[in-house]
Amino acid sequence: MSCVSRVPVSCAAVLVSALLSGCVSTVGGTALRDQSAAPDSLDVPTLTESDLDRVLLTAGEVNGIMGATGIRVTGSSQNMSDNSDGVSDVDCLAAIYGAEQLVYQGSDWSALRDQVLQEPTADNEHWVEQIVVLFPSAAKAAAFVEKSRTTWQKCGGTSIDIDNSDVHSTWKIDTADVSGEILTQVSTQRNAGGWGCQHALTSASNVVVEAWACSNSITDEARTIAADMIKNAVKK
């Protein structure tokens, strides 16, 4: 999962290195939960690559959702990452990382925006990743989400080991909630003081959005981020 290996370096490195500072954080925090509209209740137009940046939330909006004040953008990328060599079960790569080259391979995606946000401190209390991926059609975007639904269900209840450079961590992947328009799944890092992440994924029109929200008291923040990204997609 994005949380398992992302530290702000350069964003291709941000998205391949790790949010190690967040993942070992033992600082508590209480996040705010927002009730947002589901994608199926919104009329999203067909988007182009020039629309992708505005789908992303602002740092202020992310702070509001996470119940924080100091979160800001620490890295961004327009390329897929490849962390497949660092996971113990590559078949569950989609449940543990976002914007992965191997996961999106063959899906016919054409462009993406990937952004990491966190407090710029060594022991950050929150870590967020927001991703929007462009497809040639709504059918292609929806097909990717359906494929992910199956993978997330299969990987729920398992543990995944992550080896990235000299860092090792183990993540417990909970049962996925795949009953609604927005898929969600929570993963918790072993021996990290309760640090965990919610992963959310959905599609609307010809885009797929992914969100990761991590803290020591994570609830439904990634779902809210994903839903609000879809709201931004409406505003063409």
Rank of each mutant, 00 (worst) to 15 (best):
G75L: 01
N124W: 12
A94E: 06
G157P: 07
Q118N: 09
E125H: 10
C214H: 05
V167R: 09
Q153I: 00
Q78D: 14
G28F: 09
K236D: 08
A226S: 08
E49L: 00
V14H: 10
M229T: 03
D166V: 13
R190N: 11
L183R: 02
V73K: 13
W127E: 06
A59P: 10
A211G: 05
S5T: 11
C92D: 00
K236E: 09
M1I: 06
Q185Y: 07
V116Y: 13
T224I: 05
R223T: 07
G86W: 05
N216C: 03
N206G: 04
G64A: 10
S203D: 04
T74Y: 08
A18N: 10
Q101G: 06
L183Q: 02
S169D: 12
S187G: 15
L20I: 15
V55L: 04
V27P: 03
S107I: 05
T184A: 07
L32D: 09
L20E: 14
L32H: 11
L20W: 14
G156R: 04
S110P: 01
L57E: 03
Q78C: 02
T48S: 14
P45M: 06
V27G: 09
V145T: 04
D220R: 08
I225H: 05
N63T: 00
A122G: 11
H126K: 14
T121I: 15
I182S: 04
E100F: 05
T151D: 13
D220E: 10
D228M: 13
G180P: 05
I230Q: 03
P120Q: 06
Q185L: 12
L112Q: 04
N79G: 10
V87F: 12
P8F: 10
